[in-house]
Deep mutational scan, measured.
Amino acid sequence: MDVFMKGLSKAKEGVVAAAEKTKQGVAEAAGKTKEGVLYVGSKTKEGVVHGVATVAEKTKEQVTNVGGAVVTGVTAVAQKTVEGAGSIAAATGFVKKDQLGKNEEGAPQEGILEDMPVDPDNEAYEMPSEEGYQDYEPEA
């Protein structure tokens, strides 16, 4: 019985440690998101679009440190934060509304985080759909 109880105690310690790591990862992701939003706020009209992409990228980098179902929630929060940063930029006159959601080359930025393969159960990952990809044929 002692062996059984000791095993359960060790398992509990492992769960607590994993929860603490997840909590730490979420806190880091939130900190990076805040950094990115402050970065966007300090940019001029020309830099705002690039700044919004930076927020998304920093958040995406930190999301990889967070495991399990938390990833889905962090990704949703990050996307809403990026959308909010863009709205703030438009409201303050840093950028025109028609410039939001495009990178410096004018290509749409939507789907940055949505296409990231995420499995809350950590069982399997699927690649994003290939609808947006084109076949590449090298020139002879």
Results as ranks from 00 to 15, higher is better:
G47S: 11
S87T: 01
V66N: 03
P117R: 04
H50D: 06
A27M: 03
Y39C: 06
G47Q: 13
V82D: 06
T72Y: 06
P117C: 10
T64K: 08
Q134Y: 07
M127D: 03
T54V: 15
D135Q: 10
M127P: 09
A11L: 11
K45C: 14
V37H: 00
Q109W: 02
K21C: 02
T59R: 02
T72W: 02
V118I: 07
E83F: 11
V37N: 00
E13W: 12
T92A: 03
G106K: 07
G14V: 12
K23D: 00
A69C: 14
I88H: 04
T72H: 05
T54F: 04
E123S: 03
Q62A: 12
L113M: 07
E137V: 08
A19E: 00
I88R: 08
V95I: 15
D119L: 06
K12R: 15
G68R: 14
V77R: 02
V49W: 11
E114D: 15
S129L: 04
E114G: 12
K34I: 08
G73I: 09
A11K: 00
K6V: 06
T92L: 04
K58Q: 11
A89V: 12
E105Q: 14
V55T: 06
G93V: 15
S129I: 08
V118H: 05
G7P: 02
V63F: 05
Q134C: 12
Q62V: 09
K23E: 00
V52E: 01
A69H: 14
E114P: 11
K34D: 00
E130N: 07
D115W: 11
V55P: 01
N103W: 10
V118W: 13
K97V: 15
P108K: 12
G101K: 15
V70F: 05
K34F: 07
V16H: 10
Q79F: 12
A107I: 02
G31C: 03
S42V: 11
Q99P: 03
G106E: 11
L38D: 02
K12F: 14
V3K: 01
G7H: 03
V70M: 15
V95P: 02
P128H: 07
K23G: 01
I112N: 14
Y136R: 06
G106S: 07
Q24L: 04
E114I: 09
Y125H: 06
K10G: 01
K34T: 05
E57S: 03
V40A: 13
N122Q: 05
V70S: 02
K34E: 01
G106C: 12
G7L: 08
E123D: 12
F4V: 07
N65W: 12
A85R: 08
V77G: 08
E105D: 09
T75H: 13
D98H: 06
E61T: 06
G106N: 10
T54C: 14
K12W: 05
K6Q: 10
A53F: 02
I112Y: 04
A17C: 10
V70A: 05
E137W: 03
G73D: 05
K23F: 07
G31H: 01
V74N: 01
T54A: 07
V71G: 03
V82K: 12
K45H: 03
D121C: 11
H50A: 15
G101T: 14
T72N: 09
E83T: 13
Q99W: 07
E131T: 12
V66D: 02
A29K: 12
E114A: 09
E130A: 05
E114H: 13
G25F: 11
E61L: 03
S9D: 08
T54H: 13
T59Y: 02
A78D: 04
E83N: 07
E83R: 04
K58S: 06
T22M: 15
E61N: 09
T44Y: 05
F94E: 11
P117V: 07
V48I: 10
M5G: 01
V70R: 10
V3E: 01
E104D: 13
P128R: 11
V52H: 01
A90S: 15
L113W: 14
D2W: 02
F4C: 01
E130R: 11
L113F: 15
A29C: 15
L100E: 11
P108T: 06
A85F: 11
S129E: 13
E46F: 12
D98W: 10
E110W: 10
K12D: 00
V52M: 15
A27Y: 14
A27F: 11
D98S: 08
Y136L: 07
E13I: 05
V63N: 02
P117T: 12
T59G: 11
E35M: 09
Q79I: 12
V74Y: 15
Q134T: 06
E46V: 13
F4L: 09
F94N: 15
E35K: 06
K21A: 14
E35Q: 01
Y39F: 11
I112G: 12
V48R: 01
E137C: 10
V52N: 01
V15T: 01
A91H: 07
V63S: 08
Y133E: 03
G132L: 05
K21V: 14
Q24N: 02
V74H: 02
K6G: 02
A56V: 14
A76W: 05
A78S: 05
G47F: 08
E83V: 09
Y39V: 07
D121Q: 00
T22E: 00
V55C: 05
E126Q: 04
E28K: 08
K60Y: 10
G31S: 08
S9F: 10
V3H: 05
T64I: 09
G106M: 07
M127G: 03
A89K: 03
E46G: 04
G47D: 14
D121A: 11
Y125G: 05
K45M: 15
V16W: 07
E137T: 09
G93M: 03
S87V: 04
V77W: 13
A107T: 12
K23R: 12
K6F: 09
S87F: 03
A56C: 11
T72F: 15
E105A: 13
V70W: 13
S42N: 02
E46A: 02
E110C: 03
G68E: 11
E57M: 13
L100M: 15
G67M: 12
A56D: 00
E123G: 02
V3S: 12
K58D: 03
Y133V: 14
A56E: 02
G36R: 09
K45Y: 03
V77A: 14
V49M: 11
A11N: 00
E126N: 03
K102R: 05
V66A: 11
P138E: 08
G93R: 05
K43E: 01
V16Y: 13
G86W: 09
E57L: 11
S42G: 08
G86N: 02
Q134I: 01
P108F: 12
V15C: 07
Q99S: 12
